[in-house]
Design a binder for these strands. Structure first.
Lengths: 106, 106
DNA sequence: GAAGTGTATGTTATAAGATAACAAATCGGC
DNA sequence: GCCGATTTGTTATCTTATAACATACACTTC
């Protein structure tokens, strides 16, 4: 869901809302780990995982738009290790996979 | 480098260029594997790797803006495997790491 | 309690990123 | 050469995100 889609929905309930309000709320939710940014679609998804420290792997179905969330510490640790080889200090990971979900791929 | 930064530069050499032209060129370059999209910054980077089939891991320094490119088949394969557990058919990977590069972290 | 400072919130305006739409040119097949 | 498909260039508009500003609120100091 993009910020503007959220805005359109909230406008039906609460007149006069503007983009900054939505973005601030989304930023707060992400800081709490309750929502994730989906960079490749300029969108946001609510967190479906039990609270983990690592960013999730988001699998996006290009056909139906569904988003699956996978927590995988091995990937994140490997990313941190790869980049550490050049002295890089990793702080935030963005991991997204585009494809077709099980239902659409069948 | 964002598309508009590229556009500004090209405008000095070739008057009258417009965004679509730049985006088309960038799309073509990405199709050839000669450039990569940096989703989290709405930017593009030229490909520095020997030609690999997999999307690279892009490590972005939030301090100086430098971008390191790492090719790692293990990460990509694991991403494909994780998502395949639910029948997902992976086609495109987005893997980016934000942090501080070796020079800035020192 | 009043004043000052910093932060949060809401609103307005604008910046930044991207694409739709259209016209013209080019290419390939017949 | 003609026609349809594709490519290229241009104009216009859409989409996403943030800067800027005003106001309110919270906290600290006197």
């Amino acid at each position: 869901m993009t910020a503007y889609e959220i805005l359109d929905q909230l406008k039906n309930e609460e007149a006069g809302l503007a983009p900054p309000t939505v973005y601030r709320a989304l930023t707060a939710l992400m800081d709490e780990g309750r929502a994730h940014r989906l960079e490749s679609l300029n969108a946001f998804v609510s967190c479906q995982c039990a609270h983990v420290d690592h960013a999730p792997v988001l699998a996006v179905c290009d056909d139906c738009g569904s988003v699956e969330e996978h927590a995988d510490e091995i990937v994140m640790d490997r990313l941190t290790a790869i980049t550490r080889a050049t002295g890089f200090h990793a702080r935030r990971h963005v991991v997204e996979v585009h494809g077709s979900c099980g239902a659409c791929a069948a």
